[in-house]
Design a protein around this nucleic acid. Structure first.
Lengths: 111, 111
DNA sequence: ACTGGTATATAGTATTACAGAGTAGATGCA
DNA sequence: TGCATCTACTCTGTAATACTATATACCAGT
């Protein structure tokens, strides 16, 4: 899908939180997951800025581990605040999708 | 709903297109519609920047009409390109919502 | 030594919604 | 007349975010 960049704003961070919540993972792997999901144009730099942001906001714990196939990986897990943020994300997402569905299907109130 | 600003990026423009597609309307009224929909924090300035953008991209036609209750209104209707853009918007939106739903509900492929 | 895959890091840019304020027309009321 | 109150468009600046492009580094196989 082309040019969904703007639509991903405020969404990608939630996706990353969700992916981390499924189990300890690291930046490069998160990127792969997102690409597998269908967001094929997401690049490592984007995910990196997101993980840095999560880190700054204390939404993730970090553990550095060696890899046998490359440089060391920074593994992330959610903090309690991260889990709350994730819940909040899905709540907001539900709200927005409801409203959009409503807009798409319902008659418009004429004023 | 609080702080959904970022999530609205790339979405609001589509909403405005959809609203215009339902019939000739103007900036102030579009703002009211969005607020009625539930996006209560949307302000006129935001809608203004969107309509200006639509105008620049030739997605809307403009007709100025006098009002009996205030200054003249700028009425918008979709151009052919605008209608195409709207279709594209819903297509993108469908794609993103599908992917998010998938992420939310499905098991994660472990690599 | 070279190449390719893995992996983190960073500077700069474009897009977009929002905050906040201004301008202006019409109406109603004191 | 003067003032407040809607209505309605306009404008400037700012913050947040994803992307581009690049750099750095580690390891394995040839």
């Amino acid at each position: 899908m082309e040019n969904i960049t703007e639509m991903l704003k405020g969404v990608l961070e939630g996706c990353v939180l969700e992916i981390i919540s499924r189990g300890e993972t690291y930046g490069y792997e998160i990127t792969q997951h997102l690409r597998d999901l269908g967001f094929t144009d997401v690049v490592e730099g984007t995910v990196y800025t997101i993980t840095i942001r999560l880190e700054k906001n204390n939404l993730v714990n970090i553990e550095k581990k060696k890899s046998t196939v490359g440089p060391p990986r920074k593994f992330y897990t959610l903090t309690e605040a991260g889990r709350e943020q994730l819940d909040l994300f899905w709540e907001k997402w539900g709200f927005v999708t409801n409203k959009l569905e409503e807009l798409k299907t319902k008659e418009m109130k004429r004023r």
